[in-house]
Design a protein around this nucleic acid. Structure first.
Lengths: 346, 346
DNA sequence: TTGAAAGCGCTAACAT
DNA sequence: ATGTTAGCGCTTTCAA
């Protein structure tokens, strides 16, 4: 690999001059500058960014830690984050925790060792501990979509009003006339309910309307298609099954619809389904999925802005929560009816 | 940030000793080793991987360049690649080209500048030129899923028998009794047909059976849901529409099904649809998608193995093509029938 | 068993 | 306008 020394020798100048010529920083005569540039091109010079990083004490890289890219929600976040970073001369380094806190911890350490300039951390797979230890070590880190009720925040965060989202889902189903409403949430039976705010919001809406959530109608999954399908299987096999299901993310909602189809049911006639996230796929289901929409672009943008400002030593206070909206599409309708409104199919 | 010098000072030894103690390389007395380790822990030492990379002349990073993570096919590849890399002490650095060859070129250069140890390059967004210039500069690079018929390969490649895949799709539809078969392919009207081998394979099957592809039944998209939906719209609005559509990737196939639904058609009764890729989502559609399955795990594994062996200076010859298989599910049936076979629903 | 010293490729303060 | 020099944090000969 050609170094600035090689170019220097070829051009008959010193490395400093080459560095200046390349970066346009010092004052260099037009002639030598041109000469240096010519040699650089001819010799196929490529700056060694690791050397640069070492001396500059910055890598121009943002670490993005998320559960799994296979969930389009995160893939969309990753793409947006990458775009924004790129526009600012940064790169983003994405890693999956697969919801494994041990792995997550390791990945966080690794990013720190690689000296990323900042980190965006998304839940499931990252302990408060692990996150907090990064921030105390001085590494700019922002939590994105955290859904915990901690005493003390582990780091500045950009988030969403999850409870509001859950409420919207419940409210919509109630307005449609549903009374037996099931929920498929990310969590484990008797264990941690990761999406508890979404569930709380929905069940608050139900309770408020006088139809409190039947505990038997709350099933658990892990945000995958498969788990959504399995939870729906359980729900729809009940002696008194729900007429509507709120899944706390779109992937599980799609799994629910799949199971309904498998059991010979028609969505939305026999079962209304609402999801959460609004991944682009949601609009392309058949029928399109009614869902609580998260403005993914805004979310990623806010997270990036926050890390950037932390990196620059500016503000470190969490912005206000984003508020989700309900996108009514074809997967919900009054019980027994074909569709909510024909023109809402799309 | 603590450096080995800080530790050295604290432990009353020299940096060399610390380095040895940490890496377990030189011979160090048990006592000093323990002392050094203790201080390292206490002082929150984190090795500076950029310094290490600089001196070791390797970053333990593999660059993965792909069109867009939002396509679950690529997200699945990325996850698998990351897993494999991780097990070998490597990281993978993923970037999206968005099928923009200018961007792709830039990203490739950037990876080279960051001194990744190797690159896996996936098509759409990477010119033969750009790829070739990497390999000539000595950077281990393997092409993955390339579907070009170049005179000279730009680099070692792992790929798929795309034509075989297309053939399988066509054959299946013919066996079901379809005669008017449409194709939605990645490409542009009158321009480049990116998925031409898949199309060629399918149309060969049709021709072989005596029902050559009607050129009016070939529409174009760009591998997105939206483009698949649009192409289907065009196809199904024809005076003599097809009774079956082969989309050259799953996302477009899902878009096709969406459009069919929107037009009040029932899949598979009124329209059979077959995709290509077999992303996990395919099995969870309602109905589940019949598709030409690519063994994504095997593909990623082969690609990783190839880069690794190139990095180690071993073999650089492309392995034999992977051969896709047909997964018959619920989106295909004889024209006018509900399902191919009831028990094949899943 | 430990230390001294050089060097990876680059930048930048400080001469000249 | 250009060169000298030091140093980023680490690894690795070579000596002691």
């Amino acid at each position: 690999m050609t170094t600035i020394y090689d170019i220097a020798k070829a051009a008959g100048v010193t490395a400093t001059t080459v560095s200046y010529a390349l970066s346009g920083k010092g004052s260099i005569s037009k002639a030598t500058r041109a000469r240096v540039l010519k040699y650089a091109r001819e010799m196929g010079y490529r700056p060694n960014l690791v050397a640069r990083s070492l001396i500059k004490q910055q890598t121009s890289t943002i670490g993005l830690v998320l559960p799994k890219l296979i969930n389009p929600f995160y893939a969309e976040i990753a793409e947006t984050a990458e775009r924004i970073a790129y526009a600012s001369g940064y790169r983003v380094s994405v890693t999956n925790t697969y919801e494994d806190e041990r792995l997550g911890q390791e990945l966080l350490e690794d990013l720190a060792s690689r000296r990323v300039d900042g980190i965006i951390a998304m839940p499931e797979g990252l302990s408060w501990q692990a996150v907090h230890s990064m921030t105390t070590s001085g590494l700019p880190l922002v939590c994105c979509m955290w859904e915990e009720e901690e005493e003390e925040a582990a780091a500045p965060a950009v988030g969403l009003d999850f409870a509001r989202g859950g409420w919207l889902a419940g409210e919509h189903l109630l307005e449609l006339g549903h009374r037996r409403i099931g929920i498929v949430a990310h969590g484990t039976e008797g264990g941690r309910l990761n999406h508890h705010l979404r569930v709380a919001g929905c069940s608050a809406a139900l309770a408020h309307a006088g139809y409190p959530l039947d505990p038997a109608l709350l099933k658990f999954g892990n945000s995958t298609l498969e788990s959504g399908a399995a939870a729906a299987q359980a729900l729809l096999s009940l002696p008194d099954p729900p007429t509507a299901i709120f899944a706390t993310n779109d992937l599980m909602a799609i799994g629910v619809i799949h199971t309904a189809w498998k059991m010979g049911m028609h969505v939305p006639r026999d079962l209304s389904v609402v999801g959460f996230d609004d991944i682009v796929l949601a609009a392309y289901m058949a029928p399109p999925l009614t869902t609580v929409a998260v403005d993914i672009g805004a979310l990623a943008r806010k997270a990036m802005e926050l890390v950037f400002s932390m990196i620059e030593g500016r503000q470190t206070t969490s912005p206000p929560l984003l508020v989700p909206t309900l996108k009514v599409r074809g997967s919900t309708a009054p019980p027994g009816e074909e569709a909510f409104a024909p023109d809402l199919k799309d």
